[in-house]
Design a binder for these strands. Structure first.
Length: 643
RNA sequence: GGCGAGAUAGCUCAGCAGGUUAGAGCGCAUGAUUCAUAAUCAUGAGGUCCCCGGUUCAAGUCCGGGUCUCGCUACCA
């Protein structure tokens, strides 16, 4: 299909924290490369993003800090917006879901579906806090987990045993707002009957979009094969887009219903022509997301669009996997991350180094790891040594031999022709990779042009030839300069800042994507500018500093974990006297298979040897604990755990 | 517990309508070179293609079972 225009969206970052390298590698860098590529080709493209500012976690953070939810989202919206901009993520608009346009758009969207009778209304019992005068979101209820008896389990999940729960399952539930025991009360919500759209979704995804990435396709298939269920699209909460229906006071749209509509409202805010981008079959819509968002962008949002009528559906949803940091999962709450705003401060002028590293190591097919050693190596061995070096050689020699003027070439030799042929094939290779959302491959192909340049210079040796054959030298330099100029366009989607610098050096502002492969980008007689270094080395000190920073985080986390708070309810002295606590030595330990947290240990208690299972495997390896002394409650009744 | 995705050289990854000695980049070793930010170029070493079975003349490549990692999801499947 020949598309007239492109609408590219990046997942809306949740405005309860700053953006980190995981977000960048997963979503913003690939989408930005794709968009810059399309713009280079002269396509009509709109690149949409914004802050996702509703939902329960933001209200919890606000409560914790004693400020309003709006204050929280204002803080992170501004921070992330400016960070993206400084990092060269070239959104056409970076909007936000707390603004007026969005509230109207999302409200209207709901109302439209409501009036069409698309929703199923259902009344159910939920916990209500009388004193606070509101229904409690799952996250606002704590209680005892029915599976592991952990007393601080949340209404939606027990952090101790990992089970996901519903608030009704909790034993002794209490409200986090007031500490009271909530009461059950009836409430009405609207459900999107996804089950009714199954047929349409099956055909659209499973038959018409077999080209989607295997992780995306596989997960959609899994959902469809399992059978879809109606999904609530409203919540009892006072932060969000109010449900525009009479009698729905105190209810807002579920954040996952309202957030993707943010793509639409942002487009509306950007251009009065927004409908062309959302409702014309000639528009290609692509959602860039992380793998945790697949179901919302492939099942739920498309269902909403489909039932609203005359909206187009995404042509592709290239979801990336996750990026780890130095071998550990990135975690906002544990501060295990490289934050974009901090990187920008600590590595001024090195935006492209991070962009390059994240692209070269993008988690396209599986989770990948970011390490500072890799960052340094990519910079020093690739950006500096291959790309920066080649360009520098070509430009410096031109200044030396021809005073900065592009020389008139003589006839090409067979070797020149071979080199030129390879050069001319590179554009198609990069395009093919980008058209299929294979960014690592595209970058590798693009870098091959710089490699080709280095090889060409090494083989032709102009610094020797110049002493004997002036005409030949002119040709060699001419070819090298064309390649340098082509690089300034070819590299732009990946490393825009450096490409711009290079473009200024070769002094050819008007070059376009279509020029790549041509041999007349810089004409004889054209003056180039002074050669400056495109990249500089990252030294060991910089790397050591970043490692130190992470080590500090690790230590701080450990210290915080060591801060034990009384986490269980008070017990009577009589209960205490019943317990026989002794010091035992761990003789042997092994991980319990198929579990994340369980460690099985043999402990010598002094009176016997017994097998004990404890949920500490995330913090200790079996080797760590063997030989250690632990206190053990020896008269605890035996229980069967996982056989 | 169910489902999905991944597991290939020290590292990051390609390969797969099944077919001769399994590829690339980086790292490493050796040599060449000096225009260039000790940058480049050439050559080479290095792999039981996660494990166990099976189909086949032939299997990283297909099928069954298992292990590990990540994600989604669940008092059912």
């Amino acid at each position: 299909m020949d598309y007239k225009r492109y609408l590219i969206t990046s997942a809306l970052p949740y405005a309860n924290g700053p953006v980190h390298i995981g977000h960048l590698a997963g979503v913003y860098v690939p989408s930005d490369i794709y968009v810059r590529y399309l713009r280079q080709k002269g396509k009509d493209v709109k690149f949409i993003c914004g802050s996702d500012e509703h939902g329960v976690p933001i209200t919890i953070k606000a409560r914790k800090e004693g400020v309003s939810p709006q204050a929280i989202v204002d803080r992170y919206h501004e921070l992330n917006k400016s960070s993206f901009e400084r990092f060269g993520i070239s959104f056409d608009i970076y909007s936000r879901t707390s603004n007026k346009v969005h509230h109207e758009t999302a409200g209207d969207f709901f109302k439209d579906l409501y009036q069409k009778g698309e929703f199923v209304e259902q009344t159910s019992e939920q916990y209500y806090d009388k004193d606070a005068g509101q229904f409690l979101a799952d996250r606002y209820i704590k209680g005892t987990c029915p599976h592991c008896n952990y007393e601080e389990a949340y209404g939606d999940q027990c952090e101790q045993c990992g089970t996901s729960l519903s608030p009704m399952e909790l034993i002794n539930p209490h409200s986090m707002l007031t500490g009271n025991n909530p009461v059950k009360k009836e409430t009405t919500h609207w459900y999107l009957p996804l089950d009714q759209y199954e047929g349409h979704l099956r055909k659209w995804i499973l038959e018409d979009h077999k080209e989607w990435k295997s992780n995306v396709y596989g997960q959609c298939k899994s959902w469809l094969d399992d059978g879809l269920k109606p999904r609530a699209v409203t919540r009892d909460l006072d932060w969000g887009v109010p449900v525009p229906v009479e009698g729905a006071d105190g209810k807002v749209l579920y954040v996952w219903f309202d957030a993707p509509i943010g793509y639409i409202s942002a487009t509306k805010e950007l251009t009065p022509d927004w409908e062309k981008y959302w409702k014309d079959e000639k528009t290609k819509l692509v959602h860039f997301i992380g793998k945790d968002n697949i179901v919302f962008h492939c099942i739920i949002f498309p269902s909403m669009l489909h039932r609203a009528g005359n909206y187009i559906l995404p042509d592709n949803v290239p979801a990336n996997e996750f990026l780890n940091l130095e071998g550990n999962k990135i975690s906002t709450s544990r501060n295990w991350a490289v934050w974009l705003h901090e990187y920008l401060e600590e590595f001024p002028g090195k935006e492209d180094v991070l962009r390059y590293t994240l692209t070269a190591n993008m988690p396209e097919t599986k989770d990948n790891d970011f390490s500072w050693a890799d960052f340094q190596a990519r910079n020093n061995n690739e950006l500096v040594a291959i790309l920066g070096n080649f360009v520098n050689r070509a430009l410096v020699l031109t200044h030396k031999y021809y005073n900065g003027e592009v020389p008139e070439p003589a006839d090409y030799t067979e070797f020149d022709k071979e080199t030129i042929e390879i050069y001319q094939q590179i554009r198609a290779k990069v395009e093919h990779a980008l058209d299929h959302y294979r960014f690592r491959e595209a970058l590798r192909e693009a870098m091959n042009l710089a490699r080709l340049g280095n090889k060409y210079l090494a083989d032709t040796e102009p610094w020797k030839v110049v002493k004997t054959d002036e005409a030949r030298t002119r040709t060699i330099m001419y070819v090298s300069l064309q390649i340098s100029a082509a690089l300034s366009v070819l590299m732009e989607p990946f490393i825009p800042f450096s490409a711009q610098k290079l473009n200024e050096m070769v002094n050819a502002p008007g070059l376009t994507w279509q020029d790549i492969g041509n041999m007349d980008l810089l004409k004889p007689g054209h003056k180039i500018n002074k050669a400056k270094l495109l990249f500089e080395k990252v030294d060991d000190v910089m790397v050591a500093n970043q490692r130190q920073k992470l080590d500090d985080t690790k230590k701080q986390n450990e210290a915080e974990n060591a801060d034990v708070e009384p986490s269980k309810a008070e017990v009577k002295f009589e209960d205490f006297t019943k317990m026989d606590i002794r010091v035992g030595t761990i003789l042997d330990a092994e991980k319990v298979k198929k579990t994340k947290k369980l460690l099985k240990m043999t402990v010598d208690t002094g009176i016997d040897q017994r097998t004990v299972v404890s949920g500490i495997a995330e913090y200790f390896t079996p080797e760590d604990v063997v030989g250690r002394q632990v206190s053990i409650l020896v008269n605890l009744a035996p229980r069967k755990i996982r056989g």
